[in-house]
């Protein structure tokens, strides 16, 4: 059994427009995936594909307009979506932790970083001040912050972008979580700093046998830091499998298009016909959501696409793939 098992997750945004009419954006339309212990799963997709929303739905941090309308998310066997807010609150920041994109705004500007590390420990278990502080300093050292004793007394605004991201990693790991969710953890950082942060993150994840979910739009990060990946389009996972398999033999036409759009592939094969308008979540096409943009679309694509196992562990949601492979 995997540590996190998400089944058929549906999340909708329900809002009112200027004319006071109710509008429903079907942002997640049946997301299913699993993350095992010690496994790093990358979730890729473009703006509006529902990557972050998947994570936020799972840990119950949705904006007011968004509602999970169906699905389950089992963490160590318990359904997170059925939990009381109080129970979920105890898990969040303790068993399940989150690293977000903007390190600067994620730290409390009015508290020294050491105190923030102490506070998050005391929020979840009974530790003495001294012990919490020792843990905090130790954690800062672990994430590669030089002179941690001194740095624990620093204010968030005194940190550079890379240092702030290290502190966030420290906060995410100080309680010894089992599942780590990193939402665009290095977007906005410089390339040379990104390398430091990702290397550090992966070292820690592997040393502690954590399960990790990395949400990113950067195929480079997935290619080099994840075991398995899930490709999202318009609120569905259209393909998932081992990273090496998907990069080498992408099955779903959207995955193919994504990989063909990387500069390296363009340099090697020329420009492929890709792109198109982002999906309109208020009026998704019936059947396969990608069919309007798909170069391989056929008549059958107006009906719900089947989930096809392409090879061991690699599955795609597509009629065309189904015809080529035989449904299992």
């Amino acid at each position: 059994m995997s540590l996190l098992e998400v089944e058929n997750l549906h999340t909708h945004f329900i809002t009112r427009d200027l004319g006071n009419r109710i509008r429903v954006a079907t942002a997640l339309n049946g997301v299913s995936f699993a993350v095992g212990e010690g496994e790093v799963v990358g979730i890729v997709g473009e703006t509006g594909a529902g990557k972050s929303l998947t994570a936020m739905s799972v840990i119950g941090l949705l904006p007011p307009a968004a509602k999970v309308v169906a699905g389950t998310a089992r963490f160590a066997g318990d359904d997170l979506l059925a939990m009381s807010p109080a129970t979920l609150n105890r898990l969040r920041g303790d068993q399940i932790t989150l690293i977000v994109q903007s390190p600067k705004t994620s730290l409390d500007p009015l508290k020294r970083i050491g105190d923030q590390l102490v506070r998050i420990q005391k929020a979840h278990r009974a530790v003495s001040d001294d012990e919490a502080r020792r843990n905090a300093v130790e954690m800062l050292a672990t994430v590669g912050i030089p002179d941690p004793e001194q740095r624990a007394r620093a204010w968030p605004h005194e940190l550079s972008g890379g240092m702030a991201q290290r502190v966030l990693i420290a906060m995410a790991l100080v309680n010894g979580p089992r599942l780590l969710i990193a939402d665009e953890p290095t977007t906005g950082l410089d390339v040379t700093v990104q390398a430091q942060i990702l290397d550090l993150l992966m070292e820690l994840v592997q040393a502690r046998r954590l399960a990790a979910m990395i949400i990113t739009h950067d195929l480079g990060i997935v290619a080099h830091y994840c075991h398995r990946m899930a490709v999202m389009f318009a609120g569905r996972i259209v393909e998932q499998g081992k990273v090496a398999d998907i990069f080498k033999r992408p099955a779903h036409p959207y995955t193919k298009a994504l990989i063909a759009s990387t500069p390296k592939q363009i340099a090697a094969r020329g420009y492929a016909k890709v792109g198109g308008l982002p999906p309109n979540l208020y009026a998704l096409p019936s059947g396969c959501h990608y069919r309007d943009r798909c170069p391989e679309a056929e008549a059958a694509c107006t009906t719900e696409p089947p989930l096809v196992t392409v090879r061991d562990g690699q599955r795609a949601l597509c009629h065309v793939v189904a015809r080529g492979t035989r449904v299992q």
Binding site: D17, G19, N20, R21, I22
Partner: peptide, 14 residues
């Protein structure tokens, strides 16, 4: 049902 309501009316209500 809301979409079929006259535009002006629903705007005003909004």
């Amino acid at each position: 049902t809301e979409a079929t309501r006259p535009r002006i009316g629903s705007r005003l209500l909004g």
